[in-house]
Amino acid sequence: MLVNLTLIFIAAAITHNFVLTYFLGICPFIGVSKKIEQAAGMGAATTFVMTLAATVTWVIYHFILVRFNLPFLEYASFIIVIASLVQIVEMFIRKTSPVLYRALGIYLPLITTNCAILGLTLFMVLRDYKFLESVIFGLGAGSGFTLALIIMAGIREELECCDVPRPLQGAGITLIIAGILALSFMGFGGLISR
């Protein structure tokens, strides 16, 4: 059981990293990876919402959609759950911890349209995870997202001193770096054979 959970965590965080192998959450990966602090804030907020979203959508999927035979409502209900979850988290953090709210503030609403979260819930249904597995999967995917975002931000901070060819500046060079990062993450592939 514990081994299984650990494997799910490592697979989601490193070997099958959401950003670098499934291309989920590329928009924030390119948009908010200019400064390390920003990247860490965005990563923390996303990890938090991902774990919560995995928990809540698992419950909704298994106790409402499956029981009443409503699979066609899957996408619509998942996206509503995620959007309202983000809203609730935002209100909750604003009430309880204004400091954290100010740190995360701008990034929270952006998370709704982060495809990594909807992707996470879809993969969870597709792979038929149990409850605890889903929670760990969410946590792992969030950590992997944060890791990729922070590595990218670190590289981009260094990149400011480099002489990049004009047409490649901005999105172009970021994508090429992401490609090289994806190559290096492939090296972890042997960790888990699945």
Binding site: P165, P167, A171, I173, L175, I176, A178, G179, L183, M186
Partner: peptide, 14 residues
């Protein structure tokens, strides 16, 4: 593989 997608799109945008 994923790496090819990133690199190709990067150069296409360039």
């Amino acid at each position: 593989l994923p790496a090819g997608a990133f690199i190709t799109l990067g150069f296409l945008i360039g």
